[in-house]
Design a protein around this nucleic acid. Structure first.
Lengths: 204, 204
DNA sequence: ACCTGAACACCGTTCAAGT
DNA sequence: ACCTGAACACCGTTCAAGT
């Protein structure tokens, strides 16, 4: 008798395929998704993306079973860079500034495409596919490490919770995403948050 | 020659109608919308709401040309109460606590229905129908007044911007809306924000 | 005045049939 | 293996026809 864990063995989870035509389609889909995301946000029509890539809708679903899989593929490198940046900042002199800088970069990243913050938040809630995507997991890990270090250094209040702070980052990104001033507003809101975190009070 | 301002003269903007059957439909629509919003959030299917109210979809659109009009109608009393609360708090002893209390109530209000914070944010951005809805305008006015008072009393940092703070409130509500702990998380995030606003630093 | 319900234009998702 | 494209089930919105 064979025991299978439901929902764990059936996912394609392919990555870039080997066959020539399939690989061409895969690349075209990512390329067109990138353009469509830039134009309409991450809620862009999947059908339209497939059409522009010169491919039927079923093909899109074959490669990217979920809209989130497509988003992840499009943002892959960018996320890797962000994680690297965070790891580097773990040895920076000022633990407060390091945390600040990384959160700032994370927010900037979230502003790449309209709706991205909401999509990420949604993926964090959706526990169905086992754990959260590795994507989100790595981001969380780095952010949590930076906050922990800042807390241990005594530059940040002791009871700041990782999940809360990172959730707040998502919230700020969401709030600023289609404001006319955009990044500037995100900066102001982040400053508000950091003042709340700073041990020893607001500095003016 | 007659000059008309596009988009300003043609809106029904009815309110509760006079004819008996129309009024019955109107009330039923609000009643069923309330139930549907509670069950599915403010993105509930309008067709389904009409169906449950025993009415064709066109009737719903006649009374509530926009989803936002329906939301406003459903939440009317609740918003009035919130505005009244805020006005009362304007004469409270402690300007900081008054601001805190009102923001807390505003967040709690936003948690009534899933998706409400996003809908409100969206309406604030959508300048097409002249100004923002009176609903939003009154809320903003009261919130801004409370913040201004706190700033003048010197209990809140001088450069806190009304629009930023209120946007942050929306963001917090959004972040907490489908968390498992819900209101508790919203409280923690709000505390973070208030610490950032407090003049003289964090108190522990 | 108000309501009905069909019609339209869009979604995402699945799946049998083809190569 | 991979792709196609029709089919399905859902949307919101409009509008001619009825009362």
């Amino acid at each position: 008798m064979v025991i299978t864990l439901a929902g764990h063995e059936s996912r394609p989870r392919a990555g870039r395929p080997k066959r020539a035509d399939a690989r061409r389609n895969y690349d075209q889909l990512i390329e067109q998704a990138k353009l469509a995301f830039a134009e309409f946000g991450v809620d862009a029509s999947l059908d339209e993306i497939a059409r522009r890539a010169g491919v039927a809708s079923g093909t899109l679903y074959r490669h990217f079973p979920t809209r989130l899989d497509l988003i992840e593929a499009v943002l892959g490198e960018q996320i890797a860079e962000l994680v690297d940046l965070g790891r580097g900042l773990l040895t920076a002199d000022d633990a407060f500034d390091a945390l600040f800088a990384w959160l700032r970069a994370a927010i900037t990243h979230s502003l790449t495409y309209r709706g991205l913050a909401a999509a990420v938040m949604n993926s964090a809630l959706n526990r169905e596919n086992g754990l959260v995507s590795t994507w989100h997991a790595e981001m969380f890990e780095v952010g949590a490490a930076l906050l922990t270090r800042a807390r241990r250094s005594g530059v940040v209040v002791a009871d700041a919770d990782e999940a809360d702070v990172l959730k707040m980052i998502g919230a700020i990104a969401w709030a600023a995403q289609d404001a006319s001033d955009g990044p500037a507003q995100a900066d102001r809101l982040l400053t508000l948050l950091m003042n709340g975190l700073r041990h020893g009070g607001v500095q003016r």
